[in-house]
Design a protein around this nucleic acid. Sequence first.
DNA 1: GAGTGGTCTAGACCACAAT
DNA 2: TTGTGGTCTAGACCACTCC
Lengths: 249, 249
Amino acid sequence: MKVKSNRLVDRAEPAKIPLYQKMKDDLVQRVLSGEWRPGELVPSETALANEYSVSVGTARKAIEQLAQERMVVRQRGRGTTIATNRGGSTKPFRFLKFFSRDHIRTEESIYLEIMPGKATAQEAKSFGIEAGAPVARMVRLRAANKMPMLIERAAIREDLCPKASQLITLHRPVSISSFLDRMFNILIMRIDEKICAALADEEDIKHLGAAAGDPVLAVERLSYDLAGRLIQISQLHVAKEAYYATSTK
Amino acid sequence: MKVKSNRLVDRAEPAKIPLYQKMKDDLVQRVLSGEWRPGELVPSETALANEYSVSVGTARKAIEQLAQERMVVRQRGRGTTIATNRGGSTKPFRFLKFFSRDHIRTEESIYLEIMPGKATAQEAKSFGIEAGAPVARMVRLRAANKMPMLIERAAIREDLCPKASQLITLHRPVSISSFLDRMFNILIMRIDEKICAALADEEDIKHLGAAAGDPVLAVERLSYDLAGRLIQISQLHVAKEAYYATSTK
DNA sequence: GAGTGGTCTAGACCACAAT
DNA sequence: TTGTGGTCTAGACCACTCC
């Protein structure tokens, strides 16, 4: 980032941000503030254009960018709605890009352990909260087509998801992202993953049917919400029969 | 590619395809035909709008979509150019999303083996060519910051890249994608990857410093060009110290 | 200074969903 | 029938690159 006396520019001029950009940023804020709930219709293009005193074309550009980022969904004749992770219609393993030889028809979550806990120093740093702050911890076995595919160890921050451990114990949701959406209006929008190779540990041997010395995929996943806040940290161990699929553009 | 009596559709109805879509498709064809070479300036918005008898806004939309798909690069005040993979300025491991603790400053390719070969039945099927058709085969060790990170076994179809094995023997390029661009005007635009866990084989032990029984990442990569043709099939073995990073949106 | 892409406007007509 | 988003037009001014 080259800065050529930015302060002067900032003070003297309003920094020359395009109208559609400013409008888009403001719309994001309004979504985050909860003014519109997930699944709800937002005002039409023309209404928003009037409200922001811009032309319809400019408003379109702002809204189209939000649609491209999957923050809203546009439907001709109906209107524009806030995106949602709810609804059983979303395909299983929406965010999980692994697959096996067969198509995945069913998804199952078997919870091995759920308990409230306190953030470790490292977790606190990642989450941006204080060490010792409450988190929900869980271990679950995830299966596709009745076959155990991976074991997940997860921590969810309870400052944004109060009583998450109790609620998860109660509902034992198959999909955490859909659960977070329903319970806390938190939309998981981006997931970063780091993948490396490891050897099967005792739990992999016990639950994934791995043998001692078998290789497994070890995945660390960081799940972020609309606002870019880190919500969940997971470690996955994926059975060696399963693949991860990615695409680079 | 599904074809539902395209001729009939074309004759009977104009199929209601938006103008900007038709224009974009045609521009793609012109790029693929080699009318404009990678790095070359294409006509301006207004020139293209005139040529296609559409308004500038419509032409913009077509060109903007090509830019979004990274097929062209737009620069204000300069013009629009066909994308390129050449040039040392692109960061190392452009398509390879793995990383180590340190930043990657240098990239190296040590070729262990390069030889012409014939496509196996499976390769032929993937490439969409005849079994026994010529391919270039190679094994290379790729290193970052002087540390060996992975071993790659690759096959490149020689029907589209004639004499690839000789040329690679001659130039031993660090980046294959940049090499394909320079030599054959083939732009790698998309790479699909399947990742699974495996145990280090003899070559991993010999060249990656792995021990027997160590886990490694086994990655299968399929590289496609602008036209969506499969150009290269690779198997990577990534040392266990390295990570793969992905992001899901 | 000439030409480029980036932003913005103010209209028009259409396909579609809801009622 | 009403209102929505999708397409398309024909202008305008600006920031920028290149000569």
